[in-house]
Structures are given as structure tokens and as C-alpha cells.
């Protein structure tokens, strides 16, 4: 009787363990999927931020380019180079 009881308990325990293991496998797979989605989103975000950074750099460089400053100074602000300069020490 004891042996039969032990066997039954072992089988039930085994079934429970198999069930837990199966749930764990599902959980890990699902986590993996979520993490992959997160990585994908983050790497897209990283690319987007890098793109924004490079666009801002290019915009800044274009707006502050010496040829543009030179043109605005001459044509819009009518600036000229000072003909006579005295350096004060």
C-alpha cells in the first residue's frame, strides 16, 4: 500500500514538475519575444536619435558656415572690413 502511495505521489509530483517546467518554457519564450521587441524598438530609437543628432549637426554647420555668415554680413548687414585698424596695447 505504502509503495503504491509513494508511486502515486511521485507520479503526481512529476506531472506537477512537468507542468511547471512547461509553464517556465512558455514564460522564457514569451519573455524572449518581449525582450526582442524591446531591443528592436530601442535600436530603432537609437537610429532615430542618431539621425536627429546628425541632422541637427548638419543644420548647425550649414547655418553657421562661414560662406553664409560672409554673405549675410556683406549683403544683408552691409558690413565691410575696417580699412584702418589701430591695435591698442
Amino acid at each position: 500500500m505504502d509503495i503504491r502511495n509513494h508511486s502515486l505521489i511521485s507520479i503526481i509530483l512529476l506531472v506537477i514538475l512537468i507542468f511547471i517546467s512547461a509553464i517556465a518554457v512558455i514564460y522564457v519564450r514569451q519573455s524572449n519575444r518581449f525582450l526582442f521587441i524591446a531591443i528592436d524598438e530601442l535600436s530603432q530609437k537609437k537610429e532615430e536619435l542618431y539621425y536627429q543628432r546628425s541632422q541637427l549637426i548638419l543644420e548647425n554647420e550649414t547655418l553657421s558656415s562661414l560662406s553664409r555668415v560672409d554673405m549675410i554680413a556683406k549683403n544683408q548687414l552691409s558690413m565691410i572690413k575696417p580699412p584702418n585698424v589701430t591695435v591698442l596695447n
Binding site: 537610429e47 542618431y50 539621425y51 546628425s54 541632422q55 549637426i57 548638419l58 554647420e61
Partner: peptide
């Protein structure tokens, strides 16, 4: 520190 060449995506 002025940018001469920049890569963008």
C-alpha cells in the same frame, strides 16, 4: 570642434 564630415542614417 567644427564638423567637417558627418555620417547620418
Amino acid at each position: 570642434g567644427k564638423f567637417i564630415a558627418v555620417s547620418t542614417i
